[in-house]
Amino acid sequence: MSPSTLSSPAVAPALDSLIHPIYARLLRMLLQQAAVDGDGVLALAGLDWSTLVSDDRPLPRETIIRLIEAALAASGRPWLGLELGRQAPVSAHGPLGYAAVTARDLSGALQMLARYGAVRNASLAWVMRPVAAGLHLQAVERVEWGRARGFYLDTVVAAMLSVIESALGQRPAGISVDMPLPTPAWAAQYQRFAPVQFRFGQPLLAMTVSAEAARLPCLGADAQAHASACRDCEAALAVLADRSLVQQVSALLAAAPAGAYPGLPAVAQACGLGPRTLMRRLAAEGSSFQLLLDAARRNRALWLLQHTHRSVEEVASELGYQDTSNFSRTVRRWFGCTPGELRRPSASAAREPARPGYT
């Protein structure tokens, strides 16, 4: 392990490049095993099994949130994220999983998780650095998950611990996890990962691994297989980095907290460009910042009006409209009907768009 800090590549999450659908497939199977109607849960998120099992395009944020909320409500198990991450096999993580378990030791496996995590989950970035205690991995959350955040973070942590166990053939002592969540009433569920120490109420998601644990050898260490998996991960990262600027800007707008859409200067800065350069490059792709902002608001408005019981005034406010009448006029421009009419089943069926982020 190099003593220098290791960071994930600067790959911004895109609306159509967020989380691989295999985790939704695993969630459906987990629900079915618990005698919960997994297909019904998928339907509430706008998904169906036949498409999900054959389509490898990553799922966008809004779809994932709907899926998590529906799964939690149907199962009545707030620790479901832990179960999902725990049951995910190494193969579920694709080349990232194989790169980790074929590394020489746990230190090398953690380097893989830090560098290539975005190929399976583009909504987190990892920074790994040596500390006095051993190694410290700190997560940077790139996406606002709202009420689905606890489930999401549980899944990430449980999946990482599962990969570590697969790599070493054991659950080593000397691992602690900082959770940026209050201690849940069901905290005992985390004990299944003993001897891992969980600390709740922390400012950031992080994992610390002792120097002794970091030196433990991986059972499947294989230099040739490891190099091959790393090449596949690099190729996957290149695909993420090469996506269009329209996709990058759409991602930033879609991930913005409700009612707090960033302005052109902030988006330009996030993309590493000046405002004029951003406008010029978007124009070259046949779009503009205003068009993309309009699309982000349109998609969120449709979801809120069709899938929540919030009043029109509340939806308008959440989307940043101070004048409800102005919001109503905008909805009519978007969909050809009023917000109230849009909530009627006939109007909803006629205007329901394709899965967000897809054409």
Rank of each mutant, 00 (worst) to 15 (best):
A99W: 02
A125R: 14
P89L: 08
A133T: 14
G117P: 03
G174N: 15
A188L: 07
A229N: 06
L168Q: 06
A158D: 05
W145H: 15
S176K: 11
F198K: 01
A229S: 03
F151N: 00
L124W: 00
A223E: 15
R104F: 11
A185Q: 05
R142L: 15
M207G: 01
R147D: 15
A211C: 03
W145C: 11
A114F: 08
L96C: 07
F198P: 00
V163K: 02
F198G: 01
A109W: 04
V131F: 07
G97T: 04
T102A: 12
A229G: 06
R171G: 08
C233H: 05
P95E: 10
F198W: 05
D222W: 01
R199A: 14
S210M: 08
L216P: 07
R171N: 07
A100K: 02
G174Q: 14
G146S: 07
V127N: 11
M179N: 00
R147L: 14
H93Q: 14
V209Q: 01
A187N: 08
D178H: 13
S123Q: 04
A132W: 09
A148Q: 10
G174Y: 13
Y98S: 01
P180W: 12
A206K: 02
S176N: 06
S107R: 14
S210L: 12
F151P: 00
G201F: 05
I164Y: 00
L181D: 01
L124P: 00
G169Y: 10
R199P: 05
L106N: 06
R149H: 13
A99Y: 02
R120P: 01
L137R: 05
P89C: 11
W145D: 10
E212Q: 15
C218S: 11
V127K: 13
